[in-house]
Design a binder for these strands. Structure first.
Length: 284
DNA sequence: CTTATTTGACCTCA
DNA sequence: TGAGGTCAAATAAG
């Protein structure tokens, strides 16, 4: 309801993320990991810096979107076909009006390329489309909390033609769902038993894709390694999605807006930034 | 039984 | 008009 409440929450979250990453960075400076990385138990300085920068970046974006959304953005909220989260009402309103929507044009969007589609959020697939001149279909995800918390975050995932192991991921809008409901890995919080977040409901689709066009042979050696490393602590063997959740799992904060965006911006590849030993801190 | 995914229909926009 | 985005009934999975 309140237009600025969710935005404020997001801002808070972003600031907390930045703070958290900064603290970790400070700790890392005080206690640098050994050279061979054997005792590595957390994210690299680069990762943490990326997080910090991203927090600012996204915070500014949110600030910008506050103004826009006050007038033009998030039109579903005010359009006749948006309705409340009430199912019955929706039924009545939308029956016979399926697909009633307006295309999002000016909302925030981040594009990234990743070998996995996982992040720290729970997504629910709501559609899949064959895209013209594209070999692979595009999948559409929305935040699981779209209805209970009116979270407007969306995500589009499409396998890349040039490199089928990679996914072109577009995040649209920021998460306005509360922190409590984010599927947050706890490793850096608890430093104990849990390897990664308890539940990353993504996704059948990927398993299917993995089965169909992403055969085991197709999985990169890096991912294979990650998978192998993760299986011991994460019970989703052979699920590329789990790789992502784990990879993104070094933080205690929301990473959905594209941790990987940062390395894209800076032109740093994951291979450079995530040498193999990175899996170790995932499963500490 | 509940929740998530699939998939074809439907809608908007370029 | 067609491509892309979303909805929701049907279906599958847990």
């Amino acid at each position: 309801m309140g237009a600025d409440r969710p935005e404020r929450r997001v801002m808070e979250e972003l600031l907390l993320q930045g703070q958290s990453a900064a603290v970790q960075f400070q700790l890392l400076l005080k206690n640098p990991p050994s050279r061979d990385g054997s005792d590595r138990s957390g994210p690299s300085p680069d990762e943490l810096l990326g997080k910090i920068l991203r927090s600012f970046d996204e915070g500014l974006s949110v600030l910008g979107s506050c103004r826009e959304s006050a007038c033009a953005g998030h039109d579903r909220q005010v359009s006749p076909c948006s309705g409340e989260s009430s199912k019955s009402k929706k039924r009545v309103d939308l029956k016979g009006r399926r697909g009633c929507h307006k295309r999002r044009k000016a909302s925030q969007a981040w594009m990234t390329v990743s070998s996995t589609v996982e992040d720290n959020h729970a997504w629910r697939k709501y559609g899949q489309k064959v895209i013209l001149n594209a070999k692979y279909p595009r999948s559409y995800f929305r935040c699981t909390h779209k209805h209970d918390q009116d979270c407007k975050a969306l995500k589009q995932v499409q396998r890349m033609e040039e490199d089928p192991q990679m996914f072109h991921i577009t995040y649209i809008g920021v998460h306005t769902c509360s922190r409590d409901n984010i599927k947050v890995p706890r490793m850096l919080i608890t430093d104990s038993d849990t390897c990664v977040g308890e539940s990353f409901p993504v996704k059948q689709e990927l398993r299917e894709e993995a089965k169909s066009d992403l055969t085991n042979d197709n999985v990169s050696s890096r991912d294979s390694f990650l998978l192998a490393g993760l299986e011991s602590c994460h019970h989703q063997p052979n699920d590329p999605a789990s790789v992502s959740s784990a990879r993104m799992g070094f933080g205690d904060v929301d990473d959905s807006l594209g941790y990987e965006l940062e390395f894209l911006r800076s032109g740093v590849s994951f291979d450079d930034e995530f040498p193999i030993e990175d899996t170790e801190f995932l499963c500490q």
